[in-house]
Deep mutational scan, measured.
Amino acid sequence: MDTYKLILNGKTLKGETTTEAVDAATAEKVFKHAANEHGVHGHWTYDPETKTFTVTE
């Protein structure tokens, strides 16, 4: 398992979190669910070198 990071750049919610996942696709599902639960919808990017997802509203 690897550690993946999410950076939230929402209009009303900003922050960072991490998750352990077997691959980037699994981490993305976890992060998108969490972002949706917090009402953050926007443009997603992924940097494979740093294993970091970013969502920007």
Rank of each mutant, 00 (worst) to 15 (best):
T26F: 07
M1V: 10
A27W: 01
G42R: 02
A27R: 00
F31C: 01
V55S: 01
H38M: 15
A25Y: 10
L13Y: 15
E49Y: 11
H33D: 12
T56P: 01
K51A: 03
L8A: 04
H43N: 12
Y4E: 02
W44A: 01
M1N: 08
T56E: 08
T12P: 04
I7S: 03
V30S: 06
V40A: 04
I7L: 06
H43T: 15
K11L: 15
A34C: 15
A25R: 10
E20D: 10
K32L: 10
L8C: 13
L8Y: 13
E16C: 15
E37V: 13
V30H: 11
N9D: 10
A34R: 13
F53A: 00
G42A: 03
D23K: 02
H41P: 03
K51F: 08
E37P: 03
Y4G: 02
T3I: 13
T17R: 13
T45I: 07
V30C: 07
K14I: 11
T52Y: 03
T26M: 11
F31E: 00
A24T: 06
A35S: 05
N36F: 13
D47K: 04
K29E: 11
A24G: 04
G10M: 14
G42D: 01
P48T: 07
T50F: 06
F53L: 01
D47V: 06
H33L: 14
V30F: 14
G39Y: 05
V55Y: 03
T3A: 05
T18M: 09
T18S: 11
G10D: 03
T52C: 05
T17S: 10
F31W: 02
L8N: 01
A34T: 14
L8S: 03
F31R: 00
N9A: 08
G39A: 06
T54R: 05
T52N: 02
E57Q: 07
A24I: 08
A24S: 08
H41R: 12
A24V: 11
K5F: 11
E37F: 12
T17F: 15
H43M: 13
L8R: 01
A25S: 09
T19V: 14
V22K: 12
M1E: 06
V55F: 04
G10L: 15
E57Y: 06
T17A: 13
K5I: 12
A25N: 08
E37I: 12
H43G: 06
A25L: 10
T50C: 05
E49W: 11
D2H: 14
T12V: 11
D2F: 14
K14S: 10
V30K: 08
K51V: 02
D23V: 02
D47H: 06
F31S: 00
E49L: 13
H33K: 15
D2T: 14
T17Q: 13
E16K: 07
P48M: 08
Y46M: 01
V40F: 12
E49D: 13
L13S: 09
D2Y: 14
H33C: 11
T45G: 06
L13V: 14
G42P: 01
P48E: 10
T52A: 04
K5E: 03
A24Q: 09
D23R: 03
G39M: 06
K29N: 08
K14L: 08
A34L: 15
Y46R: 00
A27G: 01
K29Q: 11
E20F: 12
L6I: 04
T54L: 05
D23T: 05
V22G: 09
F53Y: 05
A27E: 00
N36G: 10
F31L: 05
I7W: 04
H41M: 11
L13A: 08
E57M: 06
G10Q: 04
A25T: 09
A27F: 01
E57F: 07
T12L: 11
L13Q: 09
P48D: 09
G39W: 05
T50G: 05
G10N: 04
K11H: 13
P48H: 09
D2S: 14
A21I: 02
E20V: 14
K32E: 05
G10W: 07
T56Y: 08
K32A: 07
T26W: 07
K51C: 04
G15E: 10
W44L: 03
A27Q: 01
V55I: 08
A27N: 01
E57W: 07
T12M: 11
V22M: 12
W44I: 03
P48Q: 08
D23I: 02
N9Q: 10
Y46N: 00
V40P: 02
M1I: 10
T52G: 01
Y46I: 01
E16D: 05
T52D: 00
H33S: 12
H33M: 14
T12N: 13
K5Y: 14
D2I: 13
D47Y: 06
T19G: 03
T45K: 07
H43F: 14
E28P: 00
K29I: 12
K11C: 15
W44S: 00
T50R: 07
T50V: 05
T50D: 04
V30L: 12
D23Q: 02
Y46A: 00
L6D: 02
A35P: 01
D23G: 03
K14T: 10
K5C: 07
T17D: 06
A21F: 04
T54F: 06
G15V: 15
E49F: 12
E16Q: 09
L8F: 13
E28R: 08
K11N: 12
E20M: 14
V55H: 01
T56K: 05
K51P: 00
I7P: 00
K51Q: 05
K51D: 00
M1D: 05
G10Y: 08
A27K: 00
K11P: 10
G42Q: 03
A35H: 03
T19E: 03
L6R: 00
L6Y: 02
V30G: 04
D23N: 09
Y46T: 00
F31P: 00
V40E: 03
K14E: 05
D47S: 07
L6K: 01
W44C: 02
A35L: 14
V40Y: 06
A21D: 02
E20K: 13
T17G: 07
G15H: 15
Y46F: 08
V30E: 08
I7R: 05
T54K: 05
D47E: 09
T3L: 11
K51Y: 07
